[in-house]
Every structure is written in structure tokens, then in C-alpha cells.
Design a binder for these strands. Structure first.
Lengths: 339, 339
DNA sequence: CTGAAAGCGCTTACAG
DNA sequence: CTGAAAGCGCTTACAG
């Protein structure tokens, strides 16, 4: 525990120079002009700061100032490529504003998410960027009611009036399914998470809408799988609709993880894409590129999402009271999996 | 900035109950027995804590106690799947010990790494887990000389006596190349990063050793590519050895990112694997599974690496002075890319 | 131009 | 069993 040399404090500098800590603080914060610190003293302080390799203790500063220049970020799982990139963009963007970010993974589990919020609150983060999990209404509501700066990303919670930046999931789904229809597929199935989260609902709604608009309402086939039992559920569902019975000629996977899982099944069962079944996925992924028939997919503007989220939360921290709802548009990346 | 209700402090509780802050602190820290706080007061304090939804301000606590229960983690890039998983395992492991982790990405850039160390130092992290970049000797040395708890992961720096947990890269390389030789390949090339980092040197050394041991010393062919210009360099190198001239019948990729990049080239140029060129990679990756001929690769024990790293740094924080050098063993995952 | 002092929210030796 | 007080390392209004 004992460091060879405990880090120097502002007091050490003041003593060395022979002035009060106030002057050191002023110089350190570039206020030597306003506070009219003499040129010699300023100079001398600068020297000693360098000599002692002084760097300010942000903890003390935070306690005094009431803010920490820290953002709390809660994602589903930092090891998931979508959230990994999102986190990386947020990290860079936040740094540009002088903020450090503390990341936590919720595993889409509401309890974990709530615990993370508590931890981050105790650590006095100045604001939150949250990918909310299913059923998280309560603790996010508490945050919002406390007027803590919050921005939800990837999804929002309909009951809560707060900032969010999301993809236009409905439209993205419409586009994906529309593309399949345009390519001539009629028996198009969708695999989605069993979730009451809005982004999932919207993706399903977009699918249904596109099907109905094309007069294919009777062909609507949505199978839900559980996040916590993805392998098992995917296996059961795909076996049912692709192997035991031939229920679809195209499949739309609602997320990255669902798609990857589906591709394993399809590869293992030697189902030919797109001849036996066309495919379309959500979010880019290197794995999609190497699949026998590279996957057509909905690309999310992750960088922009990160940028907007950080901007909004920083604005809120700086006192903005307006509520921002940002809806971004996707890009459809066309490749071979849809023929 | 102004919160509707500023969070209650220990003082608010004390006032409400009508006791001093000392008693509240004792109860909050479960010391009511040692400090002999009366049962009634303890009870009353507990009630008010609940009523006011009080949670301690860790910033104040940290300032007073001199530690923050925070770990600083520096990886090359959190968006890279290898570092993403590593970070996730470290997060979980650290949480189990009561630590929060702050993650930063260095992009293998020494300057960025140094800046991150400064930021984390200012934030008074209790210890560091670092994936060192090329040329980072100086600032890591400073940390070590200051007796700051540090553990290096994935690689270490030969000149610095400190803790590390790494893969036995030499042995892993020997095994990978040995496998190719066993499968009958003779003109085996290797693509590695241009780097003086020990993990890369060891991987190259293992390759050379395996080649020489098999009497294939004259066939040794190592091409180095730059991290910052991966695309360009890979393209040039692969064009040279696979397209313009047929210099190898097997290729060993020294990292995940190099392998992925190589696979794009091979896919684009329609080179048949393993008939025209066998392949072997480092680190698992979903993309490897979907490549036309699923890649044989060296699997690193990421979870164990994370576990050891956190354990070591926490031990150091708790006062341990012994230096730990952990070398983990790989697993060779055999699939179709080597015939 | 500079210093003494209060205070952020805690913990903890000390006194009673 | 309990309270008054010092102090962690800063910032900042106030006084001179």
C-alpha cells in the first residue's frame, strides 16, 4: 500500500514556493491573469509543478466541485461486437469533451443494470448513457426524476420522458423485408428476441407492416427466442421451420447475435443460401462476410449514435433542459444472401 | 446541473436521528458492534438511511481513505473481439472483488497509452492492468518505480521487473507450425506485426524454431506488416507471396486482426484453402468459423488470463510484494484449413 | 497581488 | 455508549 513517494499535493508546491495554496490553484487552473498572480510567482509555481511532476488529484477536485467529469455507460455486453464498437466510439467522443467513461455490462438483466446504476451513482458520475434492459423502467425513472442527465441508446422506454438516440427500427425492418419481397420471396419468417423492449417491437412491427402491405399478411411468421437461452431456442425454432417443415423461403434475423447463431445452424445443417433459404441480418459483423453466401444486412450508424449520445448527455450536464429524441436511419448493405 | 434533490449526506442522517456523524458512519460500515453503538440508535439510523435512500458518496470516502476501489485497464482496442472479451472477463472478476474498472483504448499507440495512464492516475485508481504498447517502457517503468500495483497482460516488457500474465507464445507458435509440418506442408510462411513487443518476437521465434527443428530452415519466410497500415501492407505482402509468386503452401497469421485481413484477401482472390494454401490463425473468432474452410487456430485462455490478472493486481493492492509471472498454455483448435 | 479560512462528505483517533 | 474535531486535497469567496 505505501507508495515509495506519495504523490505531491498542492500544499507541497505552495510550501516549496513559499506561497499559499490559493495561488497554486489559480495558476494550475490558468486563472493567473484574472486573479492577478505576479509573473514571478506564476513562473516559480510552474517550475516546481514540473520538478515535482505534480498532477492534480481529481478525487479531491471532484469532491469540492461537485462533478467528476465521468460518464457512466451501461451496455448489454461489452464483448458483443456491436456494443464493443459503440463503447469505443463513446469512449473517444467522451474523451474529446474531457470526460472519462466507466463501462458496465448488464447482460440484458434488469437487476444487474440496477446494481450498475447504483455503483455509478456512488461514484458520482455526471451523467449516464444507458442501453436499457427489459423491465428497467423503475431505476431509470428514478434517475430521470432526480434530474440526473441520462440518454438512452439503441432503445428507449416508452413510459419515460427522457433523451434517446435510436435507429428508426420500424423503417429499417420495412426496408429489409421489402428487399426480400422485391427479390421475389413470399414466405418470409422473422426471428426476434422475446422482449417487450421497443426496438424489438418496432422491428417486428416493421416486418408485419411490410408483409401486409405486400398482401402477404397470411404468411407472417415470427418466432421468439430467449436471450438467456439463445442456443437452445434457436435450435428448436430453426429445426421446426427449416428442417422438420419447410415453412419459409427467407429468414430475417432481428439482431447480430441471433443471426450468428442462425448461421451456425444453417452451416451445420447444410442449408443452401439463398436457394433453399434467403437471409438478412441486423448489424454488420465480420462473420457475415465469410459466410458461404455473404449476408445482406441492416447497417446501423454506430459512430453517429455514439456521437449524438455523448453530445446530448454533455449538453444536459451543462444545463440544457430540452429533451432530445434522435432517430437515425439505417443503410441496407446488399450482398449475396438474398439472391 | 441542479438536482431536484441533492443526495442526502451522512450529516442529513445524523441530524434527522439526532446523533453525530460518527455513529452514522460506524453503522454504515457495520462497526456498530466494535464501536458499541446502542441497539436503538443503530436501528433508528438504519431506518432513516432507508427512508432517505441514502448511499455513500464514494468520492468523499476515497479521498479520506486514500483508495478508490477502482482498477485502470488499458487495452489496445475495446472494439477488437479479443480485447472486448478480455475486458468483459476482467470487469466481472474485478466486480467480484468489489472493484470497478475504467477501460481505455491505446490503439497500440505509446502516446495514447501514456495519456491514459496519466488520466487514470489523476483519478486515483488503485492499480493497473495494462496491455503494453510498443515502446511504452518509460511510463510503465515510472508506475513500477512508484510501487503502483501493475500487472501486464498479453505481453510483458523484458526490461521491467513487474507482474505479468501472458500466453506461452513460443510454445503456441511451435505447436501451430508443428501441426502444419505434420500435415505435410513444407513452404510455410508467417505474417506478423512489425513490433519489438515480446509476444510478437516470441511467436516469430517459435515459428523459426519449429521450422529449423524440421530441417526447413531454408524455407523460413516471415513478412512483417504495420499495425497502422494493416490493409495496405497485407495487400502488398499477400500479393507478393500468393499471387505474383507462389512462395508458400501454408500461412501462419500471428494475430486475429492479421488473420481476418488475410481472409478477406484470400476470399477476394479466390485462393483455395487448404489446397492452394493452408492457413492457421491466432485467437478464436466467429469469422473463422464461417470462412469457406473453417480456420484452425491457437486458442488463448482469455478467461483464465483475466482471472489471474485481477487476482494479482488485487494482491498487490493488498500489500503483496512478490512478483508474479504467469505463463498460460494455448489450445490448438484443429479444423479444415490445414487439410 | 496574496493569505487565511471554510467547506465538499466522509472516517477515525481521541476524549469523556 | 457518544460527540467534537481533525484531515484527505482541492477550490473559492472574502479580506486586506
Amino acid at each position: 500500500m505505501k507508495k515509495k513517494n506519495k504523490r505531491p499535493s498542492i500544499k507541497d508546491i505552495a510550501d516549496r514556493v513559499g506561497v499559499s495554496t490559493a495561488l497554486v490553484s489559480y495558476v494550475l487552473n490558468g486563472q493567473e491573469k484574472e486573479k492577478r498572480v505576479s509573473a514571478e510567482v506564476t513562473q516559480r509555481i510552474r517550475e516546481v509543478v514540473k520538478e515535482l511532476k505534480y498532477t492534480p488529484n481529481q478525487i479531491a477536485r471532484s469532491l469540492r466541485k461537485g462533478f467528476t467529469k465521468t460518464l457512466g455507460l451501461i451496455v448489454a455486453d461489452i464483448a458483443n461486437p456491436f456494443f464493443g464498437s459503440l463503447a469505443r466510439f463513446i469512449e473517444d467522443e467522451a474523451n474529446a469533451y474531457g470526460y472519462t467513461v466507466i463501462i458496465g455490462s448488464s447482460d440484458e438483466d434488469c437487476e444487474k443494470s440496477s446494481l450498475l446504476v447504483d455503483t455509478l451513482l456512488n461514484r458520482q458520475v455526471d451523467g449516464f448513457i444507458i442501453v436499457p434492459s427489459d423491465g428497467c423502467t423503475n431505476h431509470i425513472n428514478d434517475l430521470v426524476n432526480d434530474e440526473m442527465p441520462v440518454v438512452l441508446v439503441d432503445r428507449y422506454i416508452p413510459g419515460i420522458t427522457t433523451n434517446y438516440v435510436i435507429l428508426d427500427n420500424f423503417n429499417a425492418s420495412m426496408d429489409a423485408v421489402g428487399h426480400l419481397i422485391f427479390k421475389g420471396y413470399r414466405r418470409i419468417g422473422m426471428i426476434a428476441y422475446q422482449s417487450s423492449l421497443i426496438h424489438m417491437k418496432e422491428r417486428v412491427r416493421g416486418y408485419c407492416q411490410a408483409m401486409e402491405a405486400a398482401g402477404l399478411g397470411k404468411n407472417i411468421l415470427v418466432r421468439e427466442v430467449r436471450h438467456a437461452h439463445l442456443d437452445r431456442d434457436m435450435n428448436r425454432v430453426l429445426k421446426e421451420i427449416l428442417v422438420d417443415e419447410n415453412k419459409v423461403d427467407a429468414l430475417y434475423f432481428a439482431t447480430n447475435a441471433i443471426a450468428i447463431n442462425g448461421l451456425y445452424f444453417i452451416q451445420k445443417n447444410k442449408i443452401k443460401v439463398p436457394t433453399e433459404c434467403a437471409l438478412i441480418g441486423f448489424d454488420g459483423n465480420e462473420a457475415f462476410d465469410f459466410f458461404a453466401s455473404p449476408l445482406t444486412f441492416i447497417k446501423q450508424p454506430i459512430h453517429e449514435m455514439a456521437k449524438e449520445a455523448v453530445k446530448i448527455v454533455v449538453d444536459q450536464i451543462n444545463g440544457s433542459r430540452k429533451v432530445a429524441h434522435i432517430m437515425l436511419q439505417h443503410e441496407l448493405i446488399r450482398r449475396q444472401s438474398c439472391g
